[in-house]
Simulated scan of single mutants.
Amino acid sequence: MCAVFGISRSGYYDWTRRKESGRSQRHEWLKKQIRRIFFDHRRLYGSKKILEILKKQGVQVAEKTVARIMKELGLKSQTIKKYKATT
């Protein structure tokens, strides 16, 4: 298969034994934190409120990153409509 893809066997086996990068480790940690916060707040919090909680915990992250991770995980906040009396 290495010949088909045009890569060396040693390069392939080096890649399979490589440790996970720091960036991907942080990404996985963020996924766990975002999922925990989302479910702790009854699936009502969106990316902005989750970002506020993460910042209070001292985590430096962008809102777009939180929104992207929520989309990857399939987490979508529920919107509660206020009651409006109609006559």
Rank of each mutant, 00 (worst) to 15 (best):
R36Q: 02
R18A: 10
R68F: 01
E52C: 11
A62H: 14
A67S: 14
S10K: 14
F5D: 07
L54Q: 10
F39L: 03
I34Y: 00
R42P: 00
K71A: 13
C2M: 12
L44F: 05
Y12N: 08
K81C: 05
Q78I: 15
E20D: 06
E20I: 07
S77C: 07
T79M: 12
I34W: 00
K81W: 03
E63M: 04
K81Y: 15
Q25H: 12
I7Y: 04
K31P: 00
Y12M: 08
R18W: 10
T86M: 10
T79G: 09
I69L: 10
R36K: 10
K82P: 05
W29G: 02
K48D: 08
I69M: 09
K48C: 08
G11K: 15
Y83W: 08
F5R: 12
S8H: 05
R42M: 05
A85E: 14
A67G: 05
Q33T: 04
I7G: 15
H27R: 04
R68T: 12
K56P: 01
E52N: 11
K64G: 06
D40I: 03
I80W: 09
R18E: 10
A3R: 12
I37G: 01
D14K: 15
L73T: 03
V66E: 03
T79F: 11
Q78H: 15
Q25V: 03
Q60L: 05
R9Q: 13
K64C: 13
I53R: 05
K76R: 14
E63G: 07
R23K: 13
R42Y: 11
T65Y: 05
K56G: 07
G46H: 06
L75T: 04
T86Y: 09
K64I: 06
E72S: 12
I34K: 00
Q60Y: 06
C2N: 11
Q60M: 11
A85M: 08
D40F: 02
Q60T: 12
R35K: 08
V61R: 01
F5A: 13
S47P: 08
T86I: 10
T16H: 11
R35I: 02
E20V: 10
K55W: 10
G22F: 02
F5C: 07
Y13A: 14
S10A: 15
Q33S: 02
L30D: 01
V66S: 01
L75N: 07
Q78L: 15
A3P: 04
T87M: 06
C2W: 04
Q57I: 07
Q78P: 01
I50M: 02
K76E: 08
I7H: 07
F5L: 13
R68K: 11
F39N: 04
K31Q: 05
G22E: 05
I50V: 09
K48E: 09
R26K: 09
L30V: 00
K56T: 06
S10H: 10
Y12L: 03
S10R: 13
K81T: 15
